[in-house]
């Protein structure tokens, strides 16, 4: 945990400093003796810097190898990283491909990552779930899910 606390403190110190620099650029349009738009961000900046510095000191004073949360097993971590990668790709292609074409493979990929290995179940599960969700939200609840390249083909 020591290393993590130090990393977190340094990242947050950088974030606080960046936030403070951006705060200096905020417009000061206010009556005299009254707080303007930068007032609250300044309070936040001071709090972030002070608390990050405290965390850094705490991290440096911690014993080397102090206990932290138990890490996930390597296989689980790998699956989690894959899932995140699939998620990012899904969101990148969703506006262009449309809900149905993007969601079905995404759903199938997640099913596999969650341990479903039977191909027929994966394909059917992904297609049926995507279809139900599309019909339910697009036509049941009027959420304008993107049709993408299937525009004019799917209702």
């Amino acid at each position: 945990m020591r290393r993590r606390n130090i990393i977190a403190a340094l990242v947050l110190l950088a974030f606080g400093a960046g936030y403070g620099i951006l705060t200096t650029q905020l417009p000061v349009r206010s009556l005299p003796d009254t707080p303007g738009p930068p007032f609250f961000p300044w309070i936040n900046t001071i709090a972030i810097l002070a608390l990050s510095a405290t965390l850094l000191v705490q991290g440096l004073m911690e014993k080397v190898g102090a206990d932290g949360p138990v890490p996930a097993p390597a296989a689980g971590r790998q699956r989690a990283i894959w899932a995140l990668a699939v998620f990012v790709v899904y969101l990148a292609v969703l506006p262009g491909l449309g809900f149905i074409l993007a969601t079905a493979p995404f759903f199938a990929a997640l099913m596999v990552l969650f341990g479903e290995t039977r191909p027929l179940r994966v394909v059917l599960g992904a297609l049926i779930a995507t279809g139900i969700l599309y019909l339910l939200f697009r036509h049941g609840f009027n959420v304008f899910l993107p049709t993408g390249v299937l525009k004019g083909i799917v209702p």
Binding site: L94, F106, M111, A129, V143, L145
Partner: peptide, 26 residues
């Protein structure tokens, strides 16, 4: 879980999108 969790993931995307019909929120 192989059916439940992907459904939750897709519903998260729909939930964020449906708020303002905007991909930025997603």
């Amino acid at each position: 879980r192989a059916l439940l969790m992907p459904t939750v993931a897709v519903l998260c995307v729909i939930g964020a999108f449906a708020l303002r019909n905007n991909f930025f929120d997603v």
